[in-house]
């Protein structure tokens, strides 16, 4: 290969990165931050931006599971309910014998993963449509929560949970650190393992994937299990940050997780996308919410503004090309 060719190749590679959806979403976030910091005093302060990313971590964790599910050709509408289950359920697992608070966390994560696996079981073996299966699961969990928690808020007394929600080792909130670690693992699993490759194949063409030997049932269950695990992790983080858990605490994260996935360029039809896009997608969502809060508007108008902005952003960053 001549030097000229090598130059062309690296230039085309740079062009591919710059025009990729994850990069564009990052660019939009940066642009919004810069403009907003000129317009609104205090928006661009380091502390405020750090706070935004900390808030984005919760959405980012839920969106991690959602990205897996969407790429594999499904959708998980039970994530909000699972976040709430984790946040409200954690105090129920309190064990005095474990002063670190690790046991309840592991128990909650096992429980939410199991909930996800049940979703996967319904989708893979009973052939229930993912929307129906996960929506039914959400409704079931909400009923269960009302019976167990009875509408009263629970207070987090778990030291590890409080630490994750409030500590700042090296000046970085622990929640962001958790998100970074999770992001690295997720990206590796998604793009550098055979498991990840199977997900993309399933999403792009389930029949071709099946005939190529991809174990569809097992993989589907794993995907929803991961989504349950991630939502559980987000629930623990949100409990730590809030100090209290209550029924409905997870509600904002359903639309947010799906919006983050789609804003990041992952195809809602499955088979194409990356978590690298959902990360800036989550930050962008939190930024928009913060901007709307700065504008003094009634809650109704805020909601309308939020929905309009998301639609506008999706139109701007390119709609999905039709595919056969």
């Amino acid at each position: 290969m001549s030097i000229r060719d090598a130059g062309l190749l690296s230039r085309s590679r740079i062009l591919a990165v710059v025009t990729s959806r994850p990069f564009l979403t990052f660019a939009i976030v940066a642009l919004v931050w810069i403009v907003a910091s000129f317009v609104s005093r205090g928006f661009g302060a380091y502390g405020h931006l750090r706070y935004l990313v900390e808030l984005a971590a919760v959405i980012g964790l839920v969106a991690a599971g959602q990205t897996f599910v969407v790429i594999a050709g499904g959708i998980d509408l039970s994530v909000a309910a699972i976040v709430t289950v984790a946040a409200v359920g954690l105090p129920l697992f309190a064990i005095d014998a474990d002063p670190t608070g690790l046991t309840p966390i592991l128990a909650v994560l096992a429980m939410t993963t199991a909930i996800g696996l049940v979703n996967g079981l319904g989708v893979a073996l009973l052939r229930v449509h993912p929307m129906i299966m996960t929506l039914a699961m959400a409704t079931f969990l909400q009923g269960l929560l009302i019976i167990i928690a009875g509408g009263s808020a629970v207070t987090a007394s778990n030291p590890l949970v409080t630490w994750v929600g409030n500590a700042r080792p090296f000046g970085v909130p622990a929640g962001i650190l958790v998100w970074v670690v999770v992001s690295v693992v997720v990206l590796v699993v998604m793009h550098a393992t055979p498991f990840g490759a199977r997900l993309f194949a399933m999403g792009a063409g389930p029949l071709a994937a099946k005939l190529s030997g991809v174990p569809i049932a097992r993989t589907t269950m794993a995907v929803y299990g991961i989504s349950g695990f991630m939502a559980g992790l987000a629930g623990i983080l949100v409990l730590g940050m809030n100090g209290q858990g209550y029924v409905g605490i997870g509600d904002p994260y359903l639309l947010a997780s799906i919006a983050a996935v789609v804003l990041g360029g992952t195809s809602i039809l499955g088979g194409l996308g990356t978590y690298a896009g959902s990360i800036p997608g989550a930050i962008l969502l939190v930024t928009i919410t913060a901007l709307i809060t700065v504008v003094n508007a009634s809650p109704g108008w805020r909601s309308i503004l939020f929905g309009t902005l998301i639609l506008a952003l999706l139109l701007l960053s390119g709609r999905e090309a039709a595919r056969r």
Partner: peptide, 22 residues
């Protein structure tokens, strides 16, 4: 085939399906 995916991944899919998942 998975038409929207690169030729390389199409060629490797049966191998991916057989390899250890992680």
């Amino acid at each position: 085939l998975h038409l929207i995916h690169p030729i390389v991944t199409n060629l490797m899919l049966p191998s991916f399906a057989r390899m250890p998942a992680l």
